[in-house]
Design a protein around this nucleic acid. Structure first.
Lengths: 345, 345
DNA sequence: ACGGATTGAGAAAACGCTTTCTCAATCATT
DNA sequence: AATGATTGAGAAAGCGTTTTCTCAATCCGT
């Protein structure tokens, strides 16, 4: 048999041989370890660049016990919200030399835990977006995922910070805006019952009702897609409400579209609000009044928390106390889809 | 010093010990190697599940020389086109047990080569979306990235398949549609000069002009964003053209918005087309006539090609001949933003 | 019942690095 | 000049798997 034809890329030992030093020294130089004589270091650097040597990350990963990679698990890469989170995390992490592995559960909620575990094993930590996962399951899963940062979820499990959006506050601002315009009959076209951010909106509306006795707030169950919004038009019109808060921008757009088909004018006949302020919300007709969520900042903040966790000594969790969670409060963005109700202009 | 407190997770040797077999046997069982006695295999499986053993991917990666991960490099995660590609690749790859590492060059074109190389070292292959990269640079880079699949780019470098969209064909279909409606004065609101897909559109338009002598086709240089489209309104109106083809849906939406502000009616006064058919194209006012690009299929196909490359023996490249590239042809999607020109209705 | 095939499992050698351990050589100190 | 402290680089031990080697124990045919 031939002499084992060189199949593998140029490795650290090639550099060592060429520079006439040991592997250890090459490693030291490549890692900026200062305990190497300047002359030798230079020789190594030259050898490395002549050979175009680039350390093999896998070998490194194994030796160092880390991968400089974090996993981001999302329910749907097609959803603007998660796209924003992903983008924010990815860019922020890149600044610190980390990469992102994505895991798209394709809305198959039963896969989420598995995907997340998988991702965790391959990465140094995971950012989890799992709006539909049950609280119990999340709580059980969290410890095994540590370092873990939750997006729009909280858990009692210790040591896992969250970055969350105050949906309850946002929807109250929206409701207040409508009431301020003169609306007294409001309706909320709800999101999926299993969605935790939907439940936060509901709680916000309860709080709102408690402090605004004259105001009616109906709730229609529904979903989170354009089509869901579209198909809710019938219920909405039958309700007699004049101020409609859709679960999010997408459903608001669906509703807008259905209303348009039926000849209902927005905002003259009906006011409609969205939620999130996705990039296209400003381009609808009329432009959508919505609660703006700085979603990319959410992603960036998620990375900031992750970084914090990563920099902690592995066993420092307890001594350092609970990691700080962050809350973003949506800001009201008034555009053309809201106006005083008919007759109150 | 204490006895080296167990810091590491449960590993293959724990399982081996518990099952009373060697590491090799555990490995064989975990990998479905059939040369293990059924009884022993069962014992190992039980031990593994009792210990909740999960193989460490990094160790595995090193031993097997592969990572079951591919890199996807895109210029901007905020761009619907690349989001679509990413989603397609990610889902298709997941089907085959592969994960995706993302690299977002943030439009910094000088970073692309570096990011791609980085990604390649960490992964088994890379899918490259680099519409602005110079042909020469691409050609030089390609071999070092192999296995490499190009999206919307081709290269002479051997062994790297592409999946491309026939933008030239698509814009001709759009032009033909406008001409069919009676327009004789067309304008193309161009994309970035450095964009290769923009050049393909230009070539398509040249072909179109060659075969339609009576038709005027003006070209305005511009960009690829909503704002670029918005700011092109002045030129467009001054041109006297009645059928406007925007570089893509985003610029079309910008143009639509600017026209709306100026009281120009679409499609009554002016017809406007987009390109790509991004998810929101159907929700503009009026809904956008556009060339539909099955962008997620592009991503899936990119994975299919990658899989093909991965399954080839490392040195089989030559014998297997050139890998097949794929072309997707956009389909014309007529919506409300196009109509006969004024006076020809 | 005996040699030659097969099976099946353990020992050990990769995989490509990092890092601890060691120890020779240099330096500073009295 | 003798001793202890410091510097700097090589040897070697991991890191957690997979896979090749090896070899003992079965199996088969005659």
């Amino acid at each position: 048999m031939a002499k084992r034809v060189r199949t593998t890329r140029t490795g650290i030992s090639d550099v060592a041989a060429r520079a006439g030093v040991s592997l250890a020294t090459v490693s030291r130089v490549m890692n900026g370890n200062q305990t190497v004589d300047a002359q030798i270091a230079e020789r190594v650097r030259i050898a490395a660049s002549e050979l175009k040597y680039q350390p093999n990350p896998t070998g490194r990963n194994l030796a160092r016990g880390k991968t400089d990679t974090i996993g981001v698990v999302v329910p749907d890469l097609g959803n603007p919200t998660f796209q924003g989170v992903l983008r924010g995390v990815s860019r922020a992490a890149a600044q610190d030399g980390y990469r992102v592995l994505i895991a798209d559960s394709s809305e198959v909620s039963s896969e989420e835990a598995i995907l997340a575990g998988e991702a965790r094993r391959r990465c140094d930590g995971v950012v989890l977006c799992a709006p539909r996962m049950g609280a119990a399951e999340l709580e059980e899963l969290a410890p095994s995922l540590h370092p873990l940062v939750l997006v729009n979820r909280a858990t009692n499990a210790t040591g896992s910070p969250s970055v969350i959006v105050d949906y309850g506050r946002g929807i109250q601002d929206l409701a207040a805006h409508l009431v301020g315009l003169g609306h007294t009959r409001l309706a909320y076209v709800a999101g999926p019952a299993s969605s935790s951010s939907h439940r936060l909106r509901l709680a916000g509306l309860d709080a709102f009702k408690a402090s605004h006795s004259g105001i009616e707030v109906q709730v229609f169950s529904n979903g989170s897609t354009f089509e869901d919004g579209h198909s809710s038009a019938g219920d909405v019109l039958a309700s007699g409400a004049t101020g409609i808060m859709a679960f999010n921008d997408l459903t608001a757009m669906g509703l807008l579209s259905a209303l348009n088909e039926r000849g209902i004018r927005v905002p003259e006949d009906l006011s409609v609000t969205g939620f999130d302020d996705i990039p296209f919300a400003r381009y609808t007709t009329p432009p959508l009044t919505t609660a703006t969520v700085p979603i990319q900042d959410v992603g960036e903040q998620a990375w900031a928390q992750m970084k914090e966790l990563l920099n902690r000594a592995p066993n420092a969790a307890a001594e350092a106390g609970e990691p700080a969670s962050t809350t973003f409060t949506p800001t009201l963005t008034v555009r053309g889809s809201t106006a005083p109700p008919p007759g109150k202009g």
